[in-house]
Design a protein around this nucleic acid. Structure first.
Length: 944
RNA sequence: GCUCAGAUGGUGGAACUGGUAGACACGCAGGACUUAAAAUCCUGUGACCUUAAAAGUCGUGCGGGUUCGAUUCCCGCUCUGAGUACCA
């Protein structure tokens, strides 16, 4: 693209965006125009952007989209009299800086600093109204000491189901030591000890610590984790997409490891319920609901027939959402990884089971997902007893049962579940009808809940509701099961075997973790000689020289994951200099929560869930006041890349030639598509001279043109350097200025919609701003406005836009405002309006979108203060009142003519006038209309 | 498979509670200015059919419905994008 409005000529007279933008950016910085102070005289409004990870590539044109929208909103809210908090910072711990450090030996802190400086320069150029005095960086010790502090609070807390909140662990100790563990309602590991009152004191310190870990909200436990060998670290579930790491796309495998976890599952129900109280996009809420995955059902225990001696239990517990189908159970299945599998395998079945397990292990996660059709499994040789019927059924293992969900065991009801049906068919297990309404169960399962139960013992004849309630009651009474709610969401793995993250403020004594003291925070990230694991396979922190607590205890060597620092950062902005707390009580009480949060939908099940979790936890402990951190959330759409291609003619032998053919003619040749830099293509027309510079090997190439032009092909892809489709905001700002870029990004379409970036059309916005500038200037480009009283038409144009922009911003429809500005300026230009009374208000209305040009004009209009302290013009409906309206008159729903009629007319009078109209007469053809519909001020429809 | 979002000119999109579909902008075509080009300004621009002009027909992914009137509401389908995936 050739972004070169002829600046040489403009410099003498026209709208000089470069000078204006530099001037006002300097002014805002020097006067701290956007510094937010706690001020209870005004209502607060907190506008937050998802802070960026400062990558080495800098900003491309897609990144600022959300920032521009939130900035417009923030500036608008200031004009509307709100005390606005609009901060920015950096999520500056992360993998890329560390990967770069591994390659170059350069400390990630240095790389990060450089990258942040680039980001800051780019952000400043766009003219954002951020309060930079509140900047935070998650990798700075004065920030991460509080991330560590929150970790310590989590370690020192447990979840009390009785009060339904987190409480200090000291309260738990008190309860256990006085009342024992019997009546305790706590979220905890499965294997907690049964402690009688008084038992606690008899435990050794080590035993006590071990026991407490089973309750702590952050805990160390051997668990199955997503291990990514290429990255050398474990990953949380939300960081794994389809068996590969989200960052880098490396394969991920399951591995058992001692790991730090966060007991987020304790908050599952509150996280689910809270969704009903917040104004978020429905898809994001839906994704969180699915992630939490609540299912209401029952757990049932099946007795093992002739259990071998030495088992910890003689029962197998299953979870089911259809307890009503329990009389239809014809087998039980365990996950191949289930801990009881080897003990319950009979000698005769040993070989078959071993072989099946081996075969399952070989299948990768991906194979297992892709192949859901093949039925597989193996019989253990053991039988279990159905508690409701006393019938014995076979116990199988199969990989369709997942170890990680529920109890890792399911009951097979072939008539009521298609998967179970396929399994039963394949292995010749019985299919039992349970409802009289079930159809064709010899062909497939029937999931119906309709009808009455048959073959179902004491629930025979009942309907679904009654049967379920009866069974739950019965199971509970017989102590073989109970109604149960299950959540899919697992606890979040919290440790990462990496260098560039927050150190976990923990040391080990006798193999057990202990917190360092609060006043020892921050625990600084130590220097290491290399950013790689040690020879013995420990994380990079294992290389730190003499890094021990009190010179004897080994520190924890893993660091916190990327989401740690971002799970509370919005509170730090409230009071970022505070050395005594993560933010003062005053600041938290004043700013409360985020009123508007704008960011990408890719954080739906990561950041946005973890942040809600930490927020709820901090509230439980009384550190913050709100149950939900982000009242309203908007997802800006992704900006995709738009790649251009040239087509190289390929010779018979497959070798590329020195001939390039235009897109429209390429089908006549055998061609290969080559990416071409989008910056040398304008409206799909290739700039051939620049192309020859860009690809010197084609300097002598022949170009087959159509209509004298070389037309490029187009495809939508990810924006990336390798595809030559990256558009850098710096280039656009140099060519058109930040105000044009801001408005063009908004003009592209609805904020929430994903779309490919296409610079075609930016000229239109630039022309608009020049036209706007011209309203204030005479033919000699001298500033010239008049004090004359505006005409009715001028007032109307102004108040239309006052109303429109107000409505648009409040419903986040920024693209429509830009069009409306164009209409307003076109109208005022036609009216040759240069009245100060009109233009001064128009400046204010436009200022959130184009802050630089409007500050300049505001000051030329004689104002000494920045317009950000001004007040948004008041909309006066009387200026829009019309006394005439041009009624569209349709006959049988088709518009045939327009009639100018007074709005004072009543329906009957309108009807009379309309029917008398010549054109209408023509369509009536002398007939009397069946019906005449008149909507006053809208439309007339005549039905013949 | 399931869940969600979407489909409107050559292009991005507008039409807010059912009321003149295509605002605004890009592109394209023609014209003015210019030695010429760029820039700027003016005019036209959904498709079809005709025309000197007017008029007409069709038209918001496809098929149906409700309504005086549907891009908008309802039912069924197709396609595209996102998320999720043996969740018991």
């Amino acid at each position: 693209m050739l972004f070169s409005p002829n600046t040489k000529e403009l410099a003498a007279m026209d709208y000089q965006f470069k000078e204006i933008e530099q001037k006002w950016q300097g002014f805002w910085a020097a006067h701290q125009t956007f510094k937010a102070e706690q001020d209870s005289a005004k209502p607060k409004y907190y506008v937050l952007d998802m802070f960026p990870y400062p990558s080495g590539a800098g900003l491309h044109v897609g990144h600022p989209l959300g920032y521009i929208a939130s900035d417009i909103f923030a500036r608008y809210k200031r004009l509307k009299g709100f005390n606005v908090l609009h901060p920015m910072g950096y999520d500056s711990f992360g993998l890329p800086a560390e990967q770069y450090a591994i390659q170059t030996g350069k400390h990630p802190a240095l790389t990060t600093e450089t990258n942040i400086n680039t980001y800051r320069r780019q952000l400043d150029q766009i003219g954002f109204s951020f309060d930079w005095s509140r900047e935070v960086r998650t990798s700075e010790p004065d920030y991460y000491r509080w991330t560590q502090w929150i970790f310590m609070q989590l370690f020192n807390s447990w979840y009390n189901l009785e009060t339904d909140k987190a409480e200090p662990i000291s309260l738990l100790i008190e309860k256990i030591s006085t009342a024992g563990s019997a009546g305790l309602k706590a979220v905890a590991d499965e294997d907690i000890l049964d402690l009688a009152p008084g038992d606690w004191a008899k435990l050794s310190e080590t035993e006590q610590e071990k026991e407490l870990l089973k309750y702590r909200l952050t805990y160390l436990r051997e668990s199955t984790v997503n291990w990514c060998p290429a990255l050398g670290t474990v990953l949380a579930n939300d960081e794994v997409k389809e068996g590969f790491s989200e960052r880098g796309g490396h394969p991920v495998e399951q591995k058992k490891m001692m790991q730090w976890s966060m007991r987020i599952s304790a908050y599952a129900e509150r996280l689910l319920q809270g969704l009903n109280t917040i104004d978020w996009p429905e898809p994001i809420k839906e994704m969180q609901r699915n992630w939490i995955g609540k299912s209401v059902g029952a757990s049932v225990r099946f007795k093992i027939e002739n259990p071998p001696a030495g088992l910890p239990t003689d029962q197998i517990e299953v979870f089911t959402t259809r307890v009503d189908t329990i009389f239809g159970v014809s087998y039980l299945v365990l996950a191949p990884e289930h801990e009881l599998v080897s003990a319950l395998t009979t000698p005769e079945q040993e070989a078959a089971i071993q072989q099946y397990i081996a075969q399952t292990k070989k299948k990768s996660e991906l194979d297992r997902m892709a192949d859901t059709k093949t039925v597989s499994g193996a019989f253990t040789g053991t039988y279990v007893i159905n508690p409701v019927s006393g019938e014995r059924v076979q116990l199988w293992i199969a990989d369709y049962v997942l170890a990680g969900y529920g109890t890792g065991a399911v009951m097979g009801v072939p008539s009521g579940d298609q998967r179970d049906w396929l399994f039963a068919r394949h292995f010749n297990l019985p299919v039992i009808q349970i409802l009289d309404a079930q159809q064709d169960i010899t062909l497939q399962a029937d999931l119906t809940k309709e009808g009455k139960y048959v073959n179902s013992g004491f629930i025979n004849g009942m309907h679904y509701q009654e049967a379920t309630a009866t069974l739950n009651e019965w199971l509970e009474k017989m102590q073989v099961g109970k109604a149960k709610i299950n959540y899919r969401m697992r606890d979040a793995i919290f440790g990462r075997q990496r260098y560039w993250g927050e150190p976990i403020p923990v040391y080990f004594k006798d193999g057990l973790p202990y917190l360092i003291k609060e006043d020892e925070l921050p625990l600084l990230l130590p220097d290491v000689d290399k950013y790689l694991p040690t020879e013995s396979g420990e994380p990079p922190l294992g290389r730190a020289h003499e890094w021990t607590y009190e010179k004897q205890y080994q520190y924890e060597l893993s660091t916190m994951p990327g989401w740690a620092g971002s799970s509370w950062y919005w509170y730090r902005y409230m009071d970022n200099q505070n050395e005594n707390a993560f933010a003062s009580e005053d600041a938290i009480a004043y700013w409360k929560d985020v009123d508007l949060y704008i960011g990408g939908a890719e954080h739906a099940t990561g950041h946005l869930l973890y942040s809600r979790f930490w927020n709820k936890f901090l509230k439980d402990l009384g550190h913050v006041n709100e149950e939900e951190p982000f009242k309203k959330l908007i997802n800006q759409g992704m900006i995709q890349g738009r790649s251009n291609f040239v087509y190289r003619v390929v010779a018979e032998d497959g070798r590329g030639t020195q001939t390039l053919v235009s897109h429209g003619l390429k089908d006549q040749y055998k061609t290969a598509a080559l990416h071409v830099d989008v910056n040398i293509v304008e409206n799909e027309v290739l700039n051939i001279a620049k192309f020859k510079e860009f690809r010197p090997e084609f300097a002598e190439a022949e170009f087959i043109l159509e209509n004298g032009k070389y037309i490029c092909g187009v495809e939508v892809e990810k924006m990336s350097k390798s595809k030559f489709n990256v558009v850098n905001p710096d280039v656009l700002i140099a060519g058109y200025g930040a105000d044009t870029l801001r408005m063009y990004e908004m003009f592209l379409g609805p904020l929430e919609q994903s779309k490919p970036w296409n610079t075609n059309g930016i000229e239109g916005v630039f022309k608009f701003l020049r036209k706007f500038w011209r309203l204030f200037h005479n033919d000699q480009w001298e500033f010239s406005v008049s004090d004359a009283e505006p005409t009715k038409a001028e007032w109307k144009a102004l108040h239309k836009i006052i109303k429109k922009v107000q409505e648009d911003i409040e419903r986040f429809s920024f693209n429509t405002s830009v069009s409306s500005f164009m209409i307003a300026v076109n109208e005022l230009t036609d009216l040759k309006c240069n009245k100060k009374a009109i233009l001064q208000e128009l400046v204010l209305v436009l200022s959130p979108y184009a802050p630089h040009i409007t500050e300049e004009l505001w000051s030329l209009l004689g104002n000494n203060e920045s317009l950000s302290g001004a007040v948004y013009p008041e909309f006066k409906p009387e200026y829009l009142v019309e006394d005439e309206f041009s009624y569209p008159v349709s006959v049988n729903g088709k518009t045939r003519t327009n009639l100018n009629l007074s709005l004072a007319l009543e329906s009957a009078e309108i009807e009379e006038l309309v029917l008398a109209d010549e054109t209408v007469q023509k369509y009536l053809e002398g007939k009397t209309p069946k019906k005449v519909i008149i909507v006053k001020g809208r439309i007339v429809n005549i039905v013949i």
